[in-house]
């Protein structure tokens, strides 16, 4: 289990950096989806099965579809971006920020390990998943539906060319 978690953590880091550094918006969106999928696997392995399903379906799946739709509507790619954007110096401090953030996360993780709740076994949670999703997280389902509607409207408003009525 630990090997899977650490491998996925590494993949998440790599795809996360690629999402920021790639100049093609399309490739960047795909890298973000891959980072999100790796996070979903970590959540599953740590017992947060419903969070993993949401992460993979919404963040990795649906959000990527919205991003790709928006990119295809706007037709913006590397060739349209100003030269300034391609300046490699903007990433000079990125490794330092990542290292400091990593150290801070490790310190927080070590200092709070004693107060962490014991993860619930995956099988038990899986049995209750339907009940938890539909009965205990009712408000969140409505919230998710409204987020999706807002996202779709946002793509239409910001990226569609021409005047709307």
């Amino acid at each position: 289990m630990e090997a899977v978690v650490y491998t996925c953590l590494g993949l998440m880091l790599v795809f996360g950096i690629l999402a920021v550094m790639l100049h093609s918006m399309l490739k960047s969106a795909i890298a973000l989806a891959a980072a999100s999928a790796a996070l979903g696997v970590i959540m599953y392995e740590l017992g947060a099965i419903w969070a993993a399903i949401f992460e993979v379906s919404v963040c990795s799946g649906l959000v990527t579809v919205i991003f790709i739709s928006a990119i295809s509507l706007s037709n913006t790619d590397k060739k349209d971006l100003p030269k300034l954007y391609e300046d490699g110096k903007r990433m000079a401090f990125l490794p330092l920020v990542l290292i400091i953030s990593g150290i801070l996360l490790i310190v927080v993780a070590i200092s709070s390990v004693s107060s962490l709740p014991v993860p619930t076994p995956v099988a038990e949670v899986a049995d209750n998943f339907r009940e938890i999703l539909w009965n205990h997280r009712q408000a969140d389902i409505w919230g998710q539906i409204i987020v999706l509607i807002t996202g779709a409207l946002a793509v239409a408003v910001l990226f569609k060319e021409g005047e709307l009525p």
Partner: peptide
């Protein structure tokens, strides 16, 4: 949604809706 929910995470979900709508 924000003023009607009874859960901090649900509050956050609806807060995101408010933030996204305001931004657009």
């Amino acid at each position: 949604g924000m003023v009607l929910v009874t859960d901090l995470f649900s509050l956050y979900v609806f807060l995101e809706v408010v933030g996204l709508s305001s931004f657009i």
